[in-house]
Amino acid sequence: MHATRLTLVTATLISAVIFLGMTIDSLRQMRTRTHADQISQEVIAGKRLWQHYDCNDCHTILGIGGYYAPDVTKSYSIRGEAWLRQFLKDPARIYPAGRQMPNFHLEDSQVGALVVYLRWVSEIDTNGWPPDPQGMARQEPVGHRIFLAQHCNTCHAIGGTGGTLAPDLTHIGSQKDKDWILAQINNPRSHKLDSIMPSFAQLPETDKQGLADYLVSLK
């Protein structure tokens, strides 16, 4: 009994020492894995805002936090800078339906800091988390993935799923041609002066093409 206890105590102490050693090594490796040299004053300001507004209360980041709103670890790389800027400035405007994020009435400089912060976060090496989906996203046309990623479906429905705030797009391909659709994506007011649809001109050209190709295919 005594020998067992001694073994256990020794093993515990050794494990604590190993843990401290791994901590030192981790902190060293994390400098490169997180690009710590890119933590500018603006990134730090963004983190302070993130904590000040208690964003982590609803959102997870690196998978930790509230489960009420989406994980923001990769928001920057999924949505892009322009989308994020518009969204943070007025969440309801760009994302009108469903569960809504409060409008914090941020100043432009604050939005800027948050976006820079989220860009830095999106570049952290997370060992491949979150995992790439294995299912439908992979088999679907590229355009449909962009359609979902940009949340077009909160307002527009296709084939019975999606929002009702804006016209149903199930047969849009038999009503409009690709040029018309591209113009609508770039500047919704080119067709209707008081359109509430946000412009997606900021999307990369390939995404806009993919989206338009997909939509014209919906006959």
Binding site: M22, D25, S26, Q29, M30, R33, T34, L62, G63, I64, I124, D125, T126, N127, W129
Partner: peptide, 10 residues
């Protein structure tokens, strides 16, 4: 420490 920017050995 799997996914938060920490080394792979975790």
């Amino acid at each position: 420490y799997y996914w938060i920017g920490t080394p792979h050995y975790w």
